[in-house]
Structure formats: C-alpha cells, structure tokens
Design a protein around this nucleic acid. Sequence first.
DNA 1: GTAAATCATGTCAATAGTTACATGTTATAT
DNA 2: ATATAACATGTAACTATTGACATGATTTAC
Lengths: 182, 182
Amino acid sequence: MRTLKYALLGLIDREPITGYDISKEFEKRIMANFWHAKHSQVYPELKRLLDEELISFELIIQGEKMEKKLYTITPKGHAEFVAWLLQDEPLGITPKDVFRLRTFFSDFMSVADFEKHLHSQLDKHNLKKGYLESSMSNYYEAVPKYGSKEFGDYAVLLGAIMREDSYIAWLKVCLDAVSHQD
Amino acid sequence: MRTLKYALLGLIDREPITGYDISKEFEKRIMANFWHAKHSQVYPELKRLLDEELISFELIIQGEKMEKKLYTITPKGHAEFVAWLLQDEPLGITPKDVFRLRTFFSDFMSVADFEKHLHSQLDKHNLKKGYLESSMSNYYEAVPKYGSKEFGDYAVLLGAIMREDSYIAWLKVCLDAVSHQD
DNA sequence: GTAAATCATGTCAATAGTTACATGTTATAT
DNA sequence: ATATAACATGTAACTATTGACATGATTTAC
C-alpha cells in the first residue's frame, strides 16, 4: 500500500523539510504516535519519490560545509497525496500487541508473576500518558482552528492520550480480576 | 525478536493444533485482536520450530486420505515459551494507524470530507465493537477463573472492546471539534 | 449430482522494516 | 581545548510480512 510514501508526501506538503527532520518526526515527535520509520527506510524512500518526480530538493549549506537537502513537494506529488488522503480504506488488521499476547497466555504464569507484569505495564503507560499530557498542555490552550496544521496535531495527540487512558483502564480491570481470585 | 515464534509455541502449548487452525486463530478468532500472520508465514515458521526441536507433529488422516499435521510442544519448547512469557520488555513503538495519519493531515481536506471520513470510520468501529460484544456475551457469563485458558480469552476480548470504545469516543470528539467550527 | 465453501499444506517473489555499518559536521557543555 | 551530543546522509545484510501461485480433499447447500 506504500503508506510510508504518503506519510512522507504529507509531511513535505506541510512545509519543506529535510530527511533528518522527517526521521525525528517519526521517532520523537507527534507522528510517532501513529507512524514509524527508521532513517534507513526514510532516505531510500525519499530517493524513490524523487525518481517519481513527486518531490524535489534544494541543497542547503549549514555553517561551513555541512550539506542538507530540503525537500519540497511538486504539483504532481501534491495531487497524488490529496487523492490518497480522500480514499476510504477498510479497517485493516488489528495492530499487534506483545503485552496482550502475554496476557492471552497468562494461564502459564502464576498470579504473582502476572500481577508483576500488569504493574510494570501500568507504570510504563502512566509515564507515557504523562509525556503526552505535558505536550498537550504546553502546546494547546484551546482547540485549534480546523484547517490549520495545529488541528491535526491536536486531534492525534488527544487520540494518543485517550488510547493510553483506555489501556491503563484495561490493565486496572485485569489487576482487579486477578486480585479477587487469590 | 521472533514474536511469531512465541505466539505459535503458546498456542501449541495450550493444546495440540494444526497449522491451518493456527492460521484461523490469527485471521478470525480471539488472537486476531492482538496478533496476525498469514498462513504463508505460519507454515515456514512451524518448519523452523520443528528444526529447533521445540515442537513435534503427528500425521492425522482426515476422511479417506486428507493429511493434517497435529503439532505438540516438546519440553524444550515449553521451557523456552515460559522463559519468554516472564520477560519484561520495554513498550516498543506505538502501533501504526492509517486513519490517525489521515487525521494528522486533515487540514488538506475540506471539513465536509473529513466529517465523511469520521462517520465512515465510526461505522466500521461500531460494527467491530458489536462483533466483539456478541463474542463476549456468547462465551462468558462471569469472569473466568484465573489459570484457565478462558481467563486469557476473556481478558484480551475485554481489552479489545475497551480499545474500540476508546477509538469511538475519540472519533466522536473529533466530530464535535470540527462541527463547532462551521 | 454438482457447485461452492471450507479444509489443508505448501512455495516464491516482492515489499516493508530493522540492525549494523559507514562517514563527516556543528553546536554545546565542561 | 575537547569531549559529547546532536546534526546530517547514506548503504548493506538480514528479518518480517504480504500477495500471488499451486494443489488437492472434504463438507455443505442447492
């Protein structure tokens, strides 16, 4: 389906960006909440988009001699991106989740071991939720206006927080279910 | 990380099973809520587990001549599986979600197009939630006892329903946010 | 009876994604 | 000054996953 292609086109369509900054977006910024790619996947894909004439770049010299490539979308690239954006796809496979896999097989663990797992997972998701909430309060005081890129940022960040809330609630229900069985 | 390996070992450890039934588990049954693999990935992995002596199989003749392989776990396989099960792994990357990607780029759509997307997505997730809830009410009247495989089934099914609830709630919040901007 | 759906097991080519290798620059903290 | 972190861009080998190809048996619905 080449989804990475459209993730890159969209980012470049938002504003000209380097491969390095695209990778950062996937690894640490808001996009990391719903997409991921290593730089070793990003650079070859950028080259491919260049070949397809969906993007172009301008060489920038940073400081004395360090080169960076600032990518810009072409009209053809923008057209393909918008066409993809409007498509209505079927749901697709449910995302993989190693912790749910372990939970599915929890009958092979003692109650104590499973409770330890649940607490550890709870800690990790609480921490993640904390990070997300601090991003949220730092960047948005009100709901951004629809049509600005801030609206997209806000919507997916909210979705990420709600996802963490739900995961945390599930872990607590599991803890409850096992603790009432001792 | 070879997670598929452990997913297969766990299933085979629950009770002897064929490659075909493992594939069904990934495609239509409870496991589909947190893991997935096509039969073209399952059969070669089973062969590999055989080579590693973690499983063995018995040939069964169904009807007149149709052969099927019923896989059983070996003591070595069970030991490796339980060792994996007790491991505490870091959270890992957030799952990819094409709809969130589209939402992130929603400023490239009209409000009407985005609302259409949201409604379509809402329909799909409501349908999915309905399926999950009917499985839940069909199979479990009370919380199954911890230690039975039904407990694992119940816990992940509950998690899947909660995940759908949260996704639906997020979609409604998005709808609300855009509709108050017209 | 026969067509369609499901059962049952595999391979192969291609795409997607990860890990490790490889190199050099610039800014920041001590 | 100098070490460390961050900036910046790539390639290569490997693992994971998908989609298409391939084949045949058995059950179920009409």
